[in-house]
Write a protein that binds this DNA or RNA. Structure first.
Lengths: 247, 247
DNA sequence: GGGATTTGTTGCTCAATATACAACTGCGTT
DNA sequence: AACGCAGTTGTATATTGAGCAACAAATCCC
């Protein structure tokens, strides 16, 4: 694996620009990458020429450029699942009162590609474009368990409830498969529970997962079965739609 | 201006991946850039490592990776104007029945950063993430005329109505400024007319523009004044909101 | 089914080029 | 007004990325 260093530098800088709160100066970037600021200056000029970065005229500092939006939306618009899922996400919100999300598998992570917010004052907001781990989110667990994928190598803990033992996780996923839906019981964020179910295409491949997230108070353990039933029902309806099956 | 070539190549490839309908093979890319496929192979590996491209397992061809969504959404979420504008765009749709858009200026182009669709059967759909020229779109003309920016160097024609003469455009923009709103009268797309007005912050700087787009039939010349009045009113209300002014 | 063709990956060499240093410019500060 | 700080530009050198060629793998096509 030969990695092209100057390209990799540029991409790392884009990541850095995204992680930064606001604009970033060339000196900071140079420090961060352990390089000379003159080199970074030229990298930034290149990124700017192609619209991936933008220099603020007044401060000469840099931020992400419009081209990243163009690319991001291009990819999102290319997911037909996304348009199809929208009304079903809305239905989930209407029927459960919690925020609904659509996730797909990429690079051993879940990518949240759509979201419908609930009207509740206290609500969970996972923005579109978020990447999250597979082993401790409901969407992620739905994806790996129903698509029968391998476990991720690293099972990092995020809360004390995160399942970090591969054997325990395997059993848990088997159980998930049997019950037809996945649950995240404060395994990624404290006070947040999620329920998710898979979406299939006409070849019976898992193409994504939809689910709801809410505060642990409302999503308490006795409500979960009925909410899960709704999630499963809507996910099944969406699968039928995706697979061109009628009803 | 010293451009870093290997980075530039990577960025060009991202643009290419976005322009492509579906996946792209390495040979095609190499041909397109006039390079050896081995070199491109390594570029693609680098892009893939950082999540900017993704290789389809079955065909070994490449597409955009999830990271571009992450970056794109990061930038969109960083625009506070976007969240603030949403209900005002909705109001435009409710009151005019046409699609409403929010645009900001970047790199001498308008970037469409939000959209609310109308319910009409025949409607104009300009997706988020679209970049469009300044001189022949209502949003673009609103941005340059009210922000008193220089004209773009190139005034490319898109329809027979596109204004390509700088002097004519200057007069037109002056008129736009006087009447308080900008019009695109089939200057970018045939059968589409748009109306837009600027949004100001508390320093009285133009931070964006909002407007509506519809088929020329409904947006006919006698309806435009009343629709323009609504656009101006809503844009003013949004400006007040943005500037923390009350009412 | 199997040879042929197309497509993507890897090893290796050499020339192109990206890097660091240093000098320069422009801003803001004290 | 002088200083200090941040970003840009010129230039020499060593790194590194490009191309060639061989390899691997998948697809085509008879």
């Amino acid at each position: 694996m030969t990695e092209i260093q100057s390209l990799a530098r540029g991409l790392k800088i884009l990541d850095l620009l995204a992680a930064a709160e606001d604009t970033v100066g060339i000196t900071e970037i140079a420090e961060y990458l352990g390089m000379d600021k003159s080199s970074i200056s030229r990298v930034m000029q290149t990124l700017a020429v192609y619209g991936y970065a933008e220099q603020e005229a007044s401060t000469r500092r840099y931020r992400l450029g419009p081209q990243v939006v163009v690319l991001g939306q291009t990819l999102l618009n290319r997911l037909p699942l996304r348009d199809q899922a929208r009304p079903f996400l809305q239905q989930l919100v209407d029927r459960t009162g919690e925020c609904a999300h659509l996730g797909v598998l990429t690079q051993n992570q879940v990518l949240y590609v759509d979201q419908v917010e609930s009207l509740a004052t206290l609500r969970v907001n996972t923005r579109i474009g978020t990447l999250a781990p597979l082993h401790c989110t409901a969407l992620g667990k739905a994806l790996i368990s129903f698509a029968r994928l391998d476990l991720p190598e690293e099972l990092n803990p995020f809360t004390t409830r995160t399942i970090v033992n591969p054997d325990v996780l395997r059993v848990h996923l088997e159980q998930t498969r049997l019950q037809g839906y996945a649950i995240d019981d404060e395994e990624y964020n404290y006070d947040v529970r999620c329920i998710a179910a898979p979406v299939y295409n006409h070849d019976n491949n898992v193409v994504g997962a939809i689910g709801i997230s809410g505060p642990a108070g409302r999503m308490n353990l006795e409500h979960i079965p009925e909410m899960a039933a709704i999630v499963c029902e809507v996910a099944r309806a969406l699968s039928n739609r995706v697979a061109f099956r009628r009803s």
